[in-house]
Design a protein around this nucleic acid. Structure first.
Lengths: 361, 361
DNA sequence: ATCATTAATGTAATGGATTACATTTCTTTG
DNA sequence: CAAAGAAATGTAATCCATTACATTAATGAT
């Protein structure tokens, strides 16, 4: 009675149906009600039916806090990403969410805007909330990050990266290899002078790894990538434009521009139009991610397809399996794919007469 | 001892620091520890200091399930959106997340892909998880949706819509007015024949409202929008292209195309290029949302700017205030803004000689 | 100096579902 | 048919932080 009165005062429920109410209506104990929900096989068919009817009749909703407290299972997963403003992360989250939802898990989302301190803090919050697993992005985190996960003994997986030799579960692409392949592709087209436009590398190991891949590929052919040909810029179209202008001022001028993502590449492409540079005849441009729009711009962008949805889904499956106690592959390699569209062509000198090149200057 | 052994077997903690541990180390009661965390003003400065030191020393993390159970506060908010694959929702979520995080709340994200049944289910899950408030999208939900919220007595707010007369808290734009304004703008440019490309209206009241706004504006000028001039298509560039082709087959041919979002508009624009239609000289196109890329395509897209971040932030502030017991404005109107770029121009006949129009056919 | 407040802290009940363990009922088999 | 084992259900302890209420200490007013 006093209890009821207090509850009425609380914001939430005027009645708050509990297991005990269901049990009373179904004529059984609370244990049985609980079993119907969690281990239905242990309950006889009739009883189960009766309990379920009672649940429906009272529209009973278990109190997850109580459940989580006792069972030590929150049915929540945390995902910690740099930002939702990049389509690639958004669709990764979307895919993960769908997979988790299909198994009755909810997703707690936190962002850290490439600030590794914030990533650590936000992750700590999710752990405190009782997340049973974590989906992360990248391999490099705050120095205290992995120790924190170990202390919490919480399963996690790094997305967007693949390191066969690494210590951590991961699902993603080999960024080094992918950008290595891009550089090789361009080298194969005859390009010898390269410019790189990459995302800010602070707090973003993918960006750094991609640059490394390019540098490595070129080094194999005896080409050294000058630091001044690596332009690091925020994720935006204007940044890409500006970066291209910087690269075009270089001597010798790069004939091929490798971009760390499609947004920067799009900016670069626009700036080429603006400067009167013909793409791909005067200059080749390659993006990364294969965002939807890249196939439709003019000319369609050559880019590296990143299977973002598969990453999100794969990460979710890995955690789900792990939580079920199944042993699964801890490292899942996804294959990116170079989509050669129309912003890449053989280096100008190879196919065009020299005078035509000059005409552009 | 038995307790400890059991814990060791459980997946989670080998030690599990609890309030009682902190209390023991700090030499006070658990109540005091709890007060240090929740109502620090009630604790003397020295004691507080001592407790905080103990918390740090043990790196104590409160068990949120226990806290939520007892206090009936989960410190979680739910957000239920159609999909994260549309930039506009992603950035809404991003903004909301940041605001919530700054106040110590975590965000549970669920998607429903425009399926109102799933929206209801997913929302029920979030309520069950103990979400203290809900951020929603749109005004129209499943018939049992609002009753469910009322039964749970949970604060919520509809984003993306503004209805001064509606029964529900909301933060967003007046979609009807916005598209009304677009139609007016085009009418003012002399256009009299219109085509509309809109998103799928099922489970999407914004799309429907926008079409209604156009229809209404035109009706005022005695123009009836023929149903065959309203093309409903999924959110994708190819859809926009195809829709434009359909509209171009109409007789009389529309000189102005009003699109429900920028992606469809972009598709329409591309198809114009493909068909050899000059934009804006032969045909005007208007988008909706003002996504980043629209300013950079060629020609830059005329579109309606939607303050998505403000919506996310505003929704978060509203719920935060409401949870704090403050009374706030329940309906927040945000002003969209027509950004007239270069895909709109006076109707061909007005400025171009007729023969030039014909030349395009 | 004394009583009334206020501040600071402690004790113990509480939230609601789960689950270890106990008990009863039903099969099965020798 | 009895005994053993399995199946079904019940009883009650448990998860851990919060908070109502009680108690003590400190402050202030008269």
């Amino acid at each position: 009675m006093a209890t009821e009165k207090r509850k009425r005062l609380q914001k939430n429920q005027g009645e708050a149906v509990r297991v005990s109410d269901v049990a009373r209506l179904a004529g059984c104990s609370t244990a049985t009600v609980s079993r119907v929900q969690n281990t239905p096989d242990l309950v006889s068919a009739e009883t189960r039916e009766r309990v379920q009817a009672a649940i429906r009749a009272l529209s009973y909703m278990p109190n997850s806090a109580a459940r989580a407290l006792r069972s030590n299972r929150s049915r929540m997963i945390g995902i910690v990403i740099p930002t939702l403003n990049h389509a690639i992360y958004a669709s990764l989250v979307d895919a993960a969410q769908q997979r988790f939802a299909s198994e009755g898990y909810s997703l707690l989302v936190a962002t850290f805007d490439y600030d590794l301190d914030r990533e650590k803090e936000q992750t700590a919050v999710l752990i405190e909330r009782g997340a049973e697993g974590l989906v992360l992005v990248g391999e490099c985190h705050h120095p205290e990050f992995y120790p924190m996960l170990a202390a919490a003994d919480i399963p996690y997986i790094n997305t967007y990266v693949f390191r066969p030799d690494g210590a951590h579960p991961c699902v993603g692409i080999d960024n080094r290899q992918a950008s290595f392949d891009i550089a090789e592709f361009l080298y194969g087209l005859g390009h010898r002078t390269f410019g790189v436009i990459c995302a800010l590398m602070e707090g973003n190991d993918r960006a750094a790894t991609r640059v490394a891949g390019v540098r490595e590929a070129l080094a194999r052919h005896g080409i050294e990538l000058d630091p001044s040909a690596i332009i690091e810029r925020p994720y935006s179209i204007p940044s890409g434009r500006e970066a291209l202008r910087v690269l075009q001022a270089l001597i010798p001028r790069p004939t091929a521009i490798i971009c760390g993502n499609d947004i920067l590449a799009f900016g670069a492409l626009i700036e080429c139009h603006e400067m009167g540079l013909a793409v791909p005849n005067d200059i080749s441009i390659v993006g990364f991610d294969n965002l939807d729009f890249t196939a439709h711009i003019s000319p369609p962008l050559t880019t590296m397809d990143v299977p973002a949805k598969e990453m999100g889904d794969g990460a979710a499956r890995f955690l789900l399996d792990t939580l079920k106690g199944r042993t699964t592959m801890r490292k899942i390699r996804l294959e990116p794919q170079l989509i050669a569209r129309r912003t890449t062509a053989p280096v100008p000198g190879l196919i065009f007469p020299v005078d035509l090149r000059k005409a552009v200057d």
